[in-house]
Design a protein around this nucleic acid. Structure first.
Length: 360
DNA sequence: AACAGTCTCAACCGCCTCGAG
DNA sequence: TCTCGAGGCGGTTGAGACTGT
């Protein structure tokens, strides 16, 4: 049994709205407010279905809607959120005041997808495109700066020259903890290079989430296999790693970002990747964020976006942590990874015991 | 100027969610 | 618990604008 189509009424008009229709709709909503869309056409004297009225209002006529060019700041936010949320246009729109999901969706499909492809990035997975699909790309990290300046000669592809130390911690990578909780290598060296810009709050947060997500993923893997035990380590004291940043240069940032996303959001991909699992390096978001928005003409804008990026992530946490239960999440590692990204601070404040209780 | 190809984005379609009864 | 309908959402379409020849 199929649902009856919404707009099947006799004589209902379709297609582009006229100025006259717009005036009628605006006037009616001004007088009576939004809602009750089913009755609005009749009451407003419109030969449209209610759904069409609602869409016209929410996507076009609403006074607070911002139209026109997207700023580089907005572009960055869209891409960041798309990388973590996918085609959740309404979710993305919530972080871009006065932009509609429809407008963002259109902008993604007509502009941002192309820009990413020009940069050698798969817009679907946010991973570097396969080299043979983008033969003109260069391997020089400095060629990737900003999507504001897409150009066929500034493209990127992963290559053997790419520093493989950008790999985030993997489930097969054994970490120990120092006294302060900082993960250390078996050889005693710090497993997480000190590589953050102190001023970059978004980088710090994202790195924190990355570390937590990876640890959670290990725990979840163990839990699902029935092997979760007291030996499962949860790196703590992550803030200690946010101290130095000298050795954080010249890494291809977007590849790192993509690699992290793949490992945290799509763990099944990581399971199939064994080439550089032993590399001792966490993912460094600060490079991504620094280079991603680099544009000599828009430095202030970029700084704003970094701060806003932090704010929007934090607002996500505060808004959702109280309303989303663990049970709501997919019972998969992928679901948990997404959950972690959504609840960075919540997870950050958990100790391993309470974490284990949540898992069982 | 005329035409063809490409791009943009408003609007539509159909499925999903959720609350009311 | 079930059904129904309003509203929400993401994918897709197509008319008009734009660009190149």
């Amino acid at each position: 049994m199929s649902r009856k189509p919404c707009c099947v009424g006799e004589g209902l008009k379709k297609g582009a709205w006229t100025t006259e229709e717009d005036k009628k709709l605006i006037s009616y909503i001004h007088d009576h407010g939004e809602g009750g869309w089913r009755d609005i056409p009749q009451k407003a004297g419109l030969k449209r279905c209610g759904k069409s009225c609602r869409l016209r209002w929410t996507n076009y006529l609403k006074p607070e809607i911002k139209r026109g060019e997207f700023s580089s700041e907005e572009e960055q936010i869209i891409i960041m959120l798309h990388a973590s949320r996918g085609n959740k246009w309404s979710v993305i729109a919530r972080h871009l005041p006065r932009r509609t999901d429809n407008e963002i969706k259109n902008y993604w499909n007509t502009h941002l997808k192309k820009k990413l492809i020009d940069q050698g990035i798969d817009p679907l997975t946010h991973k570097p495109l396969a080299p043979n699909t983008n033969p003109t790309v260069t391997t020089s990290p400095e060629n990737f700066h900003s999507l504001d300046a897409p150009s066929s000669d500034k493209q990127y592809s992963r290559s053997s020259s790419m520093p493989s130390l950008s790999r985030p911690p993997s489930s097969s990578f054994n970490t120990l903890s120092s006294n302060d909780g900082t993960p250390v290598q078996e050889d005693g060296s710090l497993s997480c290079k000190k590589r953050f810009k102190k001023s970059n709050s978004t980088s710090r947060l994202l790195n924190k989430v990355a570390a937590k997500a990876t640890s959670m993923k290990e725990a979840l893997s163990a839990s699902m296999e029935g092997t979760l035990s007291a030996n499962t380590s949860f790196p703590c004291g992550f803030s200690e790693q946010i101290r130095n940043e000298e050795d954080s240069s010249n890494i291809n940032t977007l590849a790192e970002f993509d690699t992290f996303l793949q490992s945290s959001l799509y763990p099944e991909h990581e399971m199939n990747t064994t080439s550089d699992l032993s590399i001792d390096q966490d993912y460094d978001f600060s490079h991504f964020l620094e280079n991603f928005g680099r544009d000599d003409d828009h430095n202030e804008e970029h700084n704003m976006s970094v701060e806003y990026g932090h704010d929007l992530l934090m607002s996500d946490v505060s808004q959702e942590v109280s309303s989303t239960s663990v049970d709501d999440q997919d019972n998969t590692i992928e679901g948990w990874s997404n959950y972690l990204l959504d609840h960075a601070d919540f997870i950050h404040d958990m100790d391993s015991d309470s974490l284990g209780k949540h898992l069982i």
